[in-house]
Design a binder for these strands. Structure first.
Lengths: 220, 220
DNA sequence: TAGATTGTTAATCGATTAACAATC
DNA sequence: TAGATTGTTAATCGATTAACAATC
């Protein structure tokens, strides 16, 4: 049996499992929106696009939230997955780089729905600073440290061109954010205590191209 | 020794390796831009943010493109990785859903630099159809099949809200694309012969939140 | 030759899958 | 009780790491 510390958290959830939890949460919320009260690992797995065995294994790292022979209570499981993901507390986010992508991110309504508040927009260009985007006034880059501290920002999003990304990253780390999500097409360096995730759209397309090349090469 | 089929391709490159190849290509291109002619697995690994052992192991799946005691020729290795990724042929891309994100993607210059041509923009809304974005006139959703066939589109990008995503996905599959990149926050279902990659920005933030929660819970 | 660095092997590690006992 | 479904165990599979022989 797994030992649960008194705060209800469970130790050592594998990274691969953590990466799938948001998908489970989405599927659970979709079920709740359809007024489904109880679900099974089979149903939920189909919705989330994984195997039932993997779903049960993943959930077992969080605790025992199902009932054998019955299934899972949608509302309860959703809450527990949310707790595991640390969504009980709303995280405050700063977006750095208000170009096309930064604009799109600032206007994305999906953040608020899923536990995040964009509390500041920052850009290096004087032409952009002072403009209003998604109800927020864009602030200059040299205010970044102040913003992070005074508004208790824990996550920074980098939507700058590749050239400035590492500097912005360093500034965010210096300012004390816990995690960084970057869209800049460049490998970034962070100290071990800061969590970094990188999304590179062109890289995603290149991975698709690899499989396309396989297909055409083999005549499939 | 690995057997190389006559077309120069190598069989069975592991998925985890494929996913890292674009990063290697980026790092190589950055070196080339700095007029570096020869590199080592140590240098390249640092640039790409992986270990030298992993880099060499990954490259070994593609073939033997280095020289022992010397290192790798930057231009040659870059070319070979590009070939492995199928970038010799330019892929044509259609973007479906021209909201904030679709707009940003349409205007992203990084695609052309990295082997992709956005040849069509499609949207379901009559208010958007007919407008010009990034030099392309937005076309109606019911033209999708025609567009894919007549313009030889092999990759579809879904930037619609979650609600319409599966229908768009089905239409893309029906039209015959080889790969799909989706930004919609919903699990999509594709047949086995179609390659699907999903980017969900809010999920990325939730994964960061998980680690942040660990940190604060343990008082780190 | 001596030094450097690759490509590959073997060992370790982590993730997935399948099967089933526990239990509702 | 009989049927259903979880939570867990054990087996399989794949990915990473470390070490080093090959070789430039």
């Amino acid at each position: 049996m797994v030992i649960h510390p008194t705060n209800g958290a469970v130790r050592a959830v594998p990274p691969a499992t953590v990466a799938r939890l948001p998908g489970y949460l989405r599927a659970l919320d979709a079920l709740a929106a359809e007024d489904v009260v109880t679900t099974s690992s089979d149903e939920l797995a189909v919705r989330a696009g994984v195997s039932p065995a993997q779903l049960r294994k993943d959930l077992s790292f969080l605790g025992s939230y199902g009932r054998r022979g019955v299934g899972y209570d949608v509302a309860h499981l959703s809450e527990q997955v949310g707790v595991a993901l640390g969504l009980a507390t709303q995280r405050r986010v700063v977006i750095v780089g208000i170009g096309n992508l930064g604009h799109a991110l600032a206007n994305y309504s999906g953040f608020a729905d899923r536990g995040f508040a964009v509390v500041a927009l920052v850009d290096a260009s004087p032409a952009v600073v002072g403009t209003t985007v998604a109800g927020l006034v864009v602030e200059p880059l040299d205010q970044l440290a102040d913003i992070v501290t005074s508004r208790d920002v824990s996550i920074g999003v980098i939507a700058t061109p590749a050239a400035g990304a590492q500097d912005v990253c360093d500034a965010l780390v210096q300012a004390g954010v816990a995690g960084i999500l970057t869209f800049a097409p460049r490998a970034l360096r962070v100290p071990e205590h800061v969590d970094l995730r990188a999304v590179d759209v062109a890289s995603e397309l290149q991975i698709l191209a690899f499989h396309d090349a396989r297909r055409t090469a083999t005549g499939a």
